[in-house]
Computed example of a mutant assay.
Amino acid sequence: MNAIHLSSIFQQPFSSFLLFSLPKSKPFNNSGIKASSSEKEGRNKEIRVCTERACRKQGSLDTLQVLSGIVPPFVSVNSCGCLGRCGAGPNVVVLPGPVFIKHCGTPTRAAEVMAFVCFGRDDVEEESRRSLEALALRKRAEDEMGNGNFCEAHRLLSQAIDLKPFGGVHIMLKDRSAVELAMGNLAEALDDAKEALTIAPNYPEGFISQGDAFMALDQVDAAEKSYSMALELDPSFRRSKSFKARIVKLKEKVATANLA
């Protein structure tokens, strides 16, 4: 998959790429305030990206990657089969609706789709730009984390969060929690994990991060609850080697505590 690059904003209005008009929707609240059940139901939307051969050749996998990186907590992004109109790809459909969107083959266009879903209007260039910039910073931070440059990763993630993108903040907070943990800032790591879960209450990786912070603080009961919640939300963690290693470490800590 190609690396994500920022693109210049298209001059053509976004609405010209809609095959049907998109119903107006209220903006997502990404400020860290937990949404009520009724708010979640009203905001629940899904974006599906065609990843069949024709759309793949036109860049739909990159579109899927960008949308997944800037998604707000109450929008889901998934791949799907052919949506027709193969010559106008990559094609995207927004549900409920359905609303079909054509020519979604650049990071800018993908960000405009997400912003349009969130805000229900087409004057979203500034929101799209900030969200793409934040995503690029997060990707750079991930590289720095992989190289062990945690201070630089922390700086990049903080810069990305400060941009106040319309989506992906919970992912950035989860990543920064891991960085704080690696730097030995245990309380800050827990704070970031908790904030990620405040924004996205059903975020499995957020519970993993929270569990890791609790483990580092020797709060094994709280860590066990966090890991259990992550597993409940995403049973596929059972097959994860890293998750299994966490459970082994947790059991060892529990056994040590029982002997004390």
Rank of each mutant, 00 (worst) to 15 (best):
S177L: 07
N202L: 06
A196S: 14
E180F: 15
A182S: 13
E152R: 15
R140T: 05
R246Y: 13
N185M: 08
G168C: 07
Y227L: 07
L132P: 05
A189P: 08
V220I: 13
D122G: 07
F243I: 08
T108Q: 09
G105P: 05
G105A: 11
R109P: 03
Q210E: 13
A136W: 12
D123I: 12
K139E: 15
G120S: 05
G146P: 01
A136V: 13
V169F: 02
R129T: 05
R138T: 06
A216Y: 11
E232Q: 09
Q159H: 12
V113C: 11
E142C: 12
L231T: 06
A189I: 09
F116Q: 07
G184R: 05
A216P: 08
M183T: 01
G211K: 08
Q159M: 04
P235R: 08
H170F: 15
V124I: 15
N185W: 01
L137C: 02
S240K: 14
E195T: 13
E180M: 02
L132N: 03
D143L: 12
H154R: 01
A136F: 14
F150S: 01
V179H: 04
Q219C: 12
R176T: 07
E224A: 14
D122F: 15
E133D: 14
H154S: 15
M215A: 06
A193E: 07
E195H: 13
A178C: 11
L173A: 04
D123A: 12
S240R: 12
M114K: 04
Y203H: 11
Q159L: 09
M114R: 02
R239W: 14
F214L: 11
G105Y: 05
G146D: 08
A153D: 03
G167V: 05
K241L: 15
K174H: 13
E142A: 04
E195M: 15
S228W: 06
E133L: 09
V124N: 10
E195L: 15
Q219Y: 10
P235S: 08
L186S: 10
R155E: 10
L217E: 09
L157R: 00
K174R: 14
E125T: 15
L163C: 06
I208D: 12
C118D: 09
P165I: 03
K164T: 07
G167K: 01
K225R: 14
E224T: 07
A110L: 13
M183W: 00
A115F: 03
G148F: 05
V179Q: 00
A141R: 00
D143P: 00
R121L: 05
E188H: 04
A223W: 05
